[in-house]
Design a protein around this nucleic acid. Structure first.
Length: 663
RNA sequence: GCUGGCAUGGCGCAAUUGGUAGCGCACCCGACUUGUAAUCGGGAGGUUGUGGGUUCAAGUCCCACUGCCAGCUCCA
């Protein structure tokens, strides 16, 4: 019979499997037949179009990780036969498997499980597929209540739970038996497959990472299972590299750098998720804000300031209390008066800390009659908001309970909307680039019918407008179905940082609903009353969070314009203090944050201190420099540039700041 | 909020079976000071996150609370 293998037609005997075909290619873990991933052990039939799938490509790697998850589950049930199986899919960088067990896993348990897995891997067990009817599966898996639940849900596995489609898919059910070399069944699991042919393929490229609870089928009303996370790679070298990437991310963690570099802290006395910025962090933040202000002025934004607290009514009008009351700080009951007997003599009222700035900006818009001549009206504010984030989600500066949005609301006509969105998107991207981010893509978040207000055609128009603007940008546009806020669709700018992690940055939301709720109006050219369209736009999202992202992106080595200390002058010895002091004075006159280290420490210690503080420019002067009326540069990478004439050195530093370059 | 773990001077860590809380860095004082990541000596600093309990005795065991870490759920 004839099959097509990786584009070449070949004639093969009946009964030939992928194992036979790809015997010489050790990297091939699975194959694609007519575009579908199947086990190598599958027998091919006449006319099949077959592609080898290497462990080094995404599909192959996923299969490897899925199979590793199976070995984990096998090990868990070997150690603890009463453990019930949940779901065990591959994920980015690895896999997890959920178990219902009496006692949560301890770190020692994980070590023991790794040893057990190691034995299974070394034993070279094969994954053997067998088809089974629903009824037979339910009978065979009677001891696995979660698997049985999945059997009942299989027709819409994608909805059943994240990862459920790894276990059951549309069509017939399959069970994988793990066979030892004698062909004995050592373990089995309901699974859609495919799998690598043999556990030996896993080799030494995997590792268990951590355990934690997870809700069954991702619903917090369901019981919690114990989830074990692992990672798996084609080779031990790639595993080691992955672990090194994790270590690098840890070294860059803004919470760690924030403490080390004295940038900010979260005093217990203030409360969870509420940061204070120390002087060095304050400088960085001030520079970030100042530059943003300057650019907003240039782009025609006007600046407003609004209070942090407001009466309840405002958030009833906006609808925020309907949707987000749980996420708001509880109300403060004000102005109530009682007599001596405790009877209320004056009704009080509730005030809330603001979780959003938009209602306040609407009130500014509505403070007087507006003309079409004023539109687009662009209001900007560094508006500090407070949100009652659940205790378990607070995370450094990236998820705080109090933070400052660089928030703008643009009021315009429907005709202006598209141009305005285009301009805004370009402005946003340009500004992010100025802060040193370069790698972007867009995400289009569309309506969630369960969590939204407004008419369909209005949503449709808003969504299509955003889509057109997104496509016109030329950036990749990724759909985010049902990800929109209740009042309108949004486009968000995602950025990848220096070590490849993506972050959601700016959001641009189109909103026809709040203008309606606030009954905002302007007078059009024909003297009619018209409703403006509102564009919500945050660029950093939150300044605190952007601060954290930049800190991690730069690993604390900020570009000169943001660095808390831009120049540290270090005399080789005490006699040169005065000479270097004059250079520092000149730099200060030019607005540079320069300081001299005239402490009693010895020279090498001063170099070390400057290095640990990640100061971008270290200026050194000794006898050679003084004679030449020069200074020597030492940069953060340890490189040097000796005997640079003072005027040149100053010019170089001033230019590096003005050009916002990294050094 | 849920599950698990953790909490010892400013920071990083130590303290045997429950038995006198130590070390390094930073800080203060003194001496030293000539070319690229740690000069030497001395000093000060902690009722061990908070509140209860068990015990002759608690950093260590138990309970509650607060905070932090990981994951889940959530994220306007």
């Amino acid at each position: 019979m004839t099959v097509t293998i990786d584009g070449d037609e070949r004639s093969i005997d009946s009964g030939t499997t992928g194992l036979d075909l790809f015997r010489d290619r050790r990297d091939v873990v699975v194959m694609r037949v007519a575009g579908e991933l199947v086990d190598l052990a599958r027998e091919l039939v006449d006319g099949d179009v077959v592609e080898a799938v290497s462990v080094n490509e995404p599909d192959g790697l996923m299969v490897l990780r899925h199979s590793t998850a199976h070995v984990l589950a096998q090990a868990v049930q070997q150690v603890n036969p009463s453990a019930k199986l949940g779901i065990g899919p591959p994920i980015e960088n690895g896999f997890y498997y959920d178990f219902d067990v009496e006692e949560p896993f301890t770190p020692e348990d994980l070590k023991k499980l790794e040893k057990t897995m190691q034995r299974i891997v070394k034993e070279g067990q094969t994954f053997s597929r067998r088809e089974i009817s629903d009824a037979d599966a339910l009978a065979e898996l009677a001891d696995e209540p979660y698997k049985c639940e999945l059997v009942g849900l299989k027709s819409n596995a994608a909805d059943a739970a994240e990862g459920a489609s790894a276990e059951v898919g549309e069509g017939g059910l399959t069970i994988y038996d793990n066979l030892n070399r004698q062909g004995e069944v050592k373990w089995k699991d309901l699974c859609r497959g495919p799998h690598v042919p043999n556990t030996k393929v896993l080799a030494n490229g995997w590792s268990l990472m951590r355990s934690a609870a997870a809700y069954w089928r991702g619903n917090e009303n369901n019981p919690q299972l114990q989830r074990v996370y692992g990672t798996a790679w084609p080779t031990k070298e790639e595993l080691t590299e992955y672990k090194e990437r994790l270590a690098e991310a840890e070294r860059r963690d803004h919470r760690r750098l924030g403490a080390e570099m004295d940038l900010f802290s979260f005093p217990d006395a203030i409360g969870s998720g509420l940061a204070v910025f120390h002087p060095k962090g304050g400088v960085i933040r001030m520079e970030m804000e100042e530059y943003s202000r300057k650019r907003h002025v240039e782009e025609g934004y006007e600046f407003v300031y609004t209070p942090h607290a407001t009466k309840k009514q405002l958030f009833e009008t906006s609808g925020h209390l309907d949707w987000y009351a749980d996420g708001m700080y509880p109300p403060m009951h004000m102005d109530e008066e009682r007599d001596a007997d405790g009877n209320i003599t004056k009704q009080g009222q509730d005030y809330y800390l603001k979780p959003m700035n938009c209602p306040m900006h609407n009130l500014v818009f509505d403070s007087r009659g507006r003309s079409y001549r004023e539109l687009p009206l662009r209001m900007f504010e560094f508006g500090t908001v407070y949100r009652n984030e659940k205790s378990g989600v607070v995370h450094g500066l990236t998820r705080a309970r109090g933070f400052t949005q660089d928030d703008a609301h643009i009021y315009c006509t429907r005709e202006q909307m598209k141009d305005e969105l285009t301009t805004t998107l370009n402005f946003v991207l340009g500004l992010l680039k100025d802060y040193g981010l370069t790698d972007f893509y867009l995400e289009l978040s569309t309506r969630n019918p369960e969590k939204s207000v407004g008419d369909d055609d209005v949503w449709e128009e808003a969504t299509e407008t955003l889509r057109e603007v997104g496509i016109a940008s030329g950036l990749e546009l990724v759909p985010d179905p049902e990800g929109a806020a209740f009042y309108g669709p949004k486009i968000s700018v995602q950025t990848r940082d220096a070590i490849g992690r993506s972050w959601q940055m700016s959001t641009i939301q189109l909103d026809f609903n709040l203008p309606e709720r606030f009954e905002l109006e302007y007078t059009a050219a024909d003297n009619s009353r018209q409703r403006p369209v509102m564009i919500h736009r945050a660029l950093f999202g939150s300044i605190e969070r952007f601060f954290a992202i930049l800190t991690e992106h730069y690993a604390g080595q900020f570009p000169v314009w943001l660095a808390p200390v831009q120049v540290r002058a270090i005399p080789v010895a005490e006699p040169f203090n005065e000479y270097l002091g004059e250079v520092v004075a000149e730099l200060k006159r030019q607005g540079v944050r320069a300081e001299i280290d005239d402490s009693d420490e010895r020279f090498p210690k001063k170099i070390r201190n400057a290095s640990k503080e990640k100061v971008p420019f270290v200026l050194i002067a000794g006898g050679d420099d003084q004679e030449a009326n020069a200074v020597s540069f030492r940069l953060r990478d340890g490189s040097q540039d000796n005997q640079v004439p003072i005027a040149d050195a100053v010019a170089r530093i001033v230019a590096a700041i003005a050009d916002k370059v990294q050094v």
